[in-house]
């Protein structure tokens, strides 16, 4: 049983647990049901349960491949996101078609921090079943760009130490070595490399780190 769960855990595509679309939702729930069935029903053995899971997994794989390749399949199997509010106007027909009552829209609106329909510009029911809400631009928080505040360009940070292990790959890619890391960290007050749990370097070369305990 545990082994089955472990195996499913490894082969299950990441998009499934994210439940990006209806068929991910179906697969994830069905996997749970199939994996548990032999425990509940003694007429069922593990081999049967595993072969059913493999069949569902293959179906899921084929469907997601097809959906990526063809917009027609994607529309058929997932459907398109539904516009619920456009330019501040609630689209009643779309709400009814998507079976979304107005209180549900209001609840989602409050969950995204708005209090009133008048603050909403767009609301879209996404294929994962959640409603994305875009407030009126006047209510958007001010950005550094709009206030002409100078900022350094965004750069992806790289991990130098993860779980206490030095990430050699990243060091090499950035043309550094362990001695350099040791030196830089001691400048920041870290005496011993073994004591460090995580360390990362950002785009402008600043190192941040955290001790194991």
């Amino acid at each position: 049983m545990a082994v089955t769960f472990l195996a499913v855990n490894i082969v299950l595509p990441r998009r499934t647990s994210g439940m990006l679309a209806g068929y991910d939702f179906v697969s994830l729930w069905l996997f749970g049901g199939l994996a548990a069935a032999p425990l509940i029903n003694n007429k069922v053995n593990f081999n049967q349960s595993i072969s059913a899971m493999v069949a569902v997994l293959l179906c899921h794989f084929v469907i997601s491949r097809l959906a990526v390749r063809s917009p027609v399949v994607s529309k058929l199997i997932t459907g398109k996101p539904v516009m619920l509010v456009e330019n501040g106007k609630v689209l009643r027909r779309n709400m009814r078609r998507a079976l979304v009552p107005s209180w549900m829209l209001m609840a989602e609106l409050r969950c995204s921090g708005l209090s009133d329909l008048s603050q909403v510009d767009y609301a879209i029911l996404e294929s994962c079943g959640r409603i994305s809400i875009i407030p009126k631009p006047d209510l958007w928080p001010v950005t550094a760009g709009e206030l002409d505040i100078p900022v350094s360009p965004t750069a992806q940070p790289s991990m130098l130490i993860e779980d206490g292990q030095i990430v050699e790959k990243n060091l090499k890619r950035l043309n550094y070595d362990v001695n350099w890391l040791q030196e830089e960290l001691s400048k920041l007050g870290a005496v011993c490399l073994e004591e460090i749990y995580v360390a990362s370097i950002d785009g402008s070369g600043n190192i941040s780190f955290s001790y194991k305990e």
Binding site: Y23, F25, V26, A55, V56, I77, S127
Partner: peptide, 21 residues
């Protein structure tokens, strides 16, 4: 497995996105 999987997908489409969420 294949038949039931596909039929549940159809059912989920009928129940609309709110069901998935």
């Amino acid at each position: 497995a294949v038949v039931l999987y596909l039929s549940i997908i159809v059912a989920t489409r009928l129940l609309r996105f709110r069901h998935v969420g």
